[in-house]
Amino acid sequence: MGSSDRLFSRQRTVHQILGGGLAADLMLWRRKNLTAGILVVTLAAWVVFEISGYTLLSLSSSVLLLLFTVLFLWAKSAAILNRPSPPIPHLHISEEVTNEAATLIRYHVNALLSVFEDIALGRDSEMFIKVALSLLLISVIGSVTDFLTLGYTSKFHGLVISI
């Protein structure tokens, strides 16, 4: 490696400073097709949600309506033209998966309620300060931007999980 690969003549390269993985490759445009693809998808999402005024719920509803209409018309025309019906797999959620999901949700809700109880009874002042500051920060950021922009540009879920 030449000296041009080093940042401020340091021992580590910029790629190593950025973590050296896929994220560093994307930031340094080493995987040009993937980086350009991410930028195009981000631009398309911005156009759909900000310029056109769609919300995530209205876009999902429109896509599902289009999908159901196409499948319905395909099935009706297949019956008239003696063609095969659309290949739709039989989807179902097993009881085992439902029980595992319920157990996981119950565990996390109980942990959250335990923390809430400790804060409400004054047992954990440090956690109270963390939660209060996090909620204040979320409130300030939320008043400046809308939810979709906040979701696109930050690691909002990391803030909530770390509490």
Rank of each mutant, 00 (worst) to 15 (best):
S139R: 13
F72Q: 00
A120P: 00
A120R: 14
Y107V: 07
V144G: 01
A102H: 03
F72C: 04
L133Y: 09
F128E: 11
T145Q: 02
R83G: 00
N82V: 03
I138R: 05
S139F: 03
P87G: 02
N82G: 06
D146K: 07
P86D: 01
A78E: 03
L121A: 08
S139C: 01
S125F: 02
S114W: 09
R106H: 14
L91I: 15
S134I: 10
K76R: 14
V97T: 15
L112C: 08
H90R: 10
S125L: 05
A120S: 10
A132D: 11
H90M: 06
L133C: 03
N82W: 07
K76P: 00
I88G: 05
D146N: 15
D118P: 03
R83P: 01
A132H: 14
N99Q: 15
I80W: 09
E126D: 02
K130F: 08
V131F: 12
F72K: 02
A101N: 11
F72N: 00
I80E: 04
E100Q: 14
I119G: 09
D146S: 10
L135G: 13
L112D: 07
A75K: 08
R123D: 02
L91H: 02
T98S: 14
F116M: 08
S114K: 10
L137V: 09
Y107E: 14
E117S: 15
I80F: 05
N99F: 09
F116G: 13
R123P: 01
V144R: 10
I138N: 04
L91N: 03
L137R: 05
P87L: 10
R83F: 05
L104Q: 05
L112T: 10
I105P: 01
L135D: 07
V144A: 12
H108F: 14
R83C: 06
E126F: 10
N82F: 05
H92W: 06
A101W: 13
S143L: 09
A75W: 12
M127H: 02
E100W: 12
R123Y: 04
I141A: 15
I88M: 06
I129G: 01
I105T: 13
V115R: 10
L81E: 05
V97R: 15
I105N: 02
L81P: 00
K130L: 13
D124F: 00
I93G: 03
V144C: 07
S114M: 04
E117T: 12
S85T: 08
H92I: 00
P87I: 09
D118S: 11
S143N: 09
N99R: 15
S125W: 02
V115F: 03
I138M: 14
L135A: 14
D124L: 03
P87H: 04
K130S: 13
D118R: 15
G142W: 08
D146G: 04
I138T: 03
W74P: 00
I105C: 00
E100Y: 15
E95Q: 11
L113A: 06
A101Y: 15
S125H: 02
